[in-house]
Design a protein around this nucleic acid. Structure first.
Lengths: 302, 302
DNA sequence: ATGGAGTTTCTCAAAATGAGAAACATTGAT
DNA sequence: ATCAATGTTTCTCATTTTGAGAAACTCCAT
């Protein structure tokens, strides 16, 4: 099991805050011997000395102070958890999740049409990576999500809705890139781990044995594209995103090989749980894709 | 002692993630009876039902889902605590929060300069509303955040960094808007509650007794601007955001009265807790604002 | 109706916990 | 130097908690 126990952290925190075992024990309504014992057990489990024994007292080591900082955060978060549960209730609305790129380039037209058809429906649209959105869907935080291949979402239904072409973008001064070694050691600018597009880029680089110099993680395509335009590094983005950003005129686009360049976006939701609002959205999407011959909902996986 | 135990949370998390007691038990290398027992004990201690017994399975209640969200955070932070202790130092990541608008229009230049000065520092930039970012800062999820007036963050330090002008945008076919009644009953497209700019708009409308037909909440400026351009409704955005979006050429801009039109953006952080990475960022920002005569960090409030 | 899947109750041995007494170590006053 | 006070630690032991496993119970599909 875990090496970290919240009661242990409370004891460490009290010893540091009160300046010793005896006073901490008193504050916690424990006996000093138990405080000592618990600290020694924790030190043994973690493999670090949290306190230096100094004269008749204890002085926190660097590790002890580090743990003290984390202990405060953990204890505060645990208290917040209990408070939230006592008060807690979640609201209900048509809550959609989407990739940032899809939200900016594909959804406006869809949601404009939807809003005209169903003006009474309140929409909350949140963005995130494919992995994060699937997790939120599993938790019923959101009712449906637009996510990109590759993904695995057993038990969910999927409707393919958009086809994206990915391109590598760099600062204008970078020479043509046709394969990863052309990049040299450069900084990647990407969404967080869990982003399907980032995975594509990492796979492409890994297949050629190229290691980036570093990674900057941003949660906004305008920020990513603007940073690339400013020469900070390179990124992979869907071409549809670039169409809407002026900064895109200052970046250079490099084609990716076909196996990495195409990515389909799907709408995911729980079987048997689609609200009328979600059914309406699916109808709008189906109307928009009719000429592409998109098939009806299938079990999810890609 | 505490009602919350990390092992308990791991069990709740596994039951929800794996969809049942038996699969959770297997994943955790426990027997199902122990999983059941621990959940019942936790429910008794917390005084809430975390699961509804449904047929042969368990469905999380709203409280169960709420706890699940907190469990993820606590477990992640506990893992980070152990990792940090093993590594002997804080992980070398600067975690920043920013408004979506600031991230897209102001930060790219700043972060490009910062990356050139400190290429070894890894940056994670997350976006959100002012209220959400302050909450994350309070929780130490992020080390600093760019937020917009008006805000209240007692105990934090603030450095004013950008000045934004807000404009009302509508579809191209909308007549000139000089006051709220000119809008008639229209749909607002806005960030979630907690967004300072949305508050400005709502205050402006409320002062004239105008009620919008509805609200669509999006978490992406490209999506908001594109929806406005598509004629779905109106929104308030900083002028600096429009400069980077092609869809902005298809919207009409309407000036807001001066009391509502100007908003200053500040960097917030905890006193006495600035890492070297954050201090470097503050220096870059101070260099960029020197000609504007910006004052040094003050207690936060606006 | 039956068999299989999934949860729960119950029993019990092992592990963990906390109190309290005694031993040990350090410090300050005389 | 001696002694008392302060503070920590070791040790013992009773109590509580935990986790495994068997059996009972409930639900669902065939």
């Amino acid at each position: 099991m875990r090496n970290i126990d919240l009661d242990d952290l409370e004891i460490v925190h009290a010893v540091i805050a009160h300046g010793g075992v005896a006073r901490a024990a008193q504050a916690l309504h424990r006996v000093p011997s138990n405080v000592t014992t618990r600290i020694k057990q924790l030190e043994a489990r973690l493999g670090v000395a949290l306190f230096a024994r100094r004269g008749r007292g204890l002085a926190p080591t660097a590790e002890g102070r580090l743990l003290h900082g984390y202990a405060e955060r953990l204890l505060r978060l645990a208290d917040e958890t209990e408070s939230a549960l006592r008060a807690g209730r979640l609201l209900g609305t048509l809550r959609l999740g989407s990739l940032e790129s899809t939200a900016g380039s594909r959804l406006p037209q869809v949601l404009a049409r939807y809003n005209r058809a169903h003006p009474a429906v309140r929409i909350e649209l949140v963005t995130g990576t494919t992995a994060a959105l699937i997790a939120r869907l599993a938790r019923h935080d959101i009712e449906a999500a637009f996510v990109s291949e590759p993904f695995c979402a057993p038990g969910l239904l999927a409707q393919p809705v958009f086809e994206e072409e990915l391109v590598l973008i760099s600062g204008g001064g970078v020479a043509a890139v046709s394969s990863p070694p052309d990049l040299g050691r450069t900084t990647l600018i990407a969404f967080a781990s869990g982003c399907s597009y980032r995975r594509r880029l990492e796979e492409w680089l890994a297949a050629a044995g190229v290691l980036p110099e570093g990674v900057l993680e941003f949660a906004s395509y305008p920020a990513i594209v603007a940073c690339v335009a400013a020469g900070t590094g390179v990124a992979v983005v869907p071409r549809s995103v670039l169409a809407g950003l002026k900064a895109a005129e200052s970046v250079r686009q490099h084609a990716l090989p076909p196996t990495f360049a195409y990515s389909r976006t799907h709408l995911l939701w729980h079987p048997g749980q689609a609200s009328l609002a979600l059914q309406g959205l699916r109808a709008v999407l189906a109307d928009g894709c009719r000429e592409a011959g998109v098939t009806v909902a299938a079990p999810a996986g890609a």
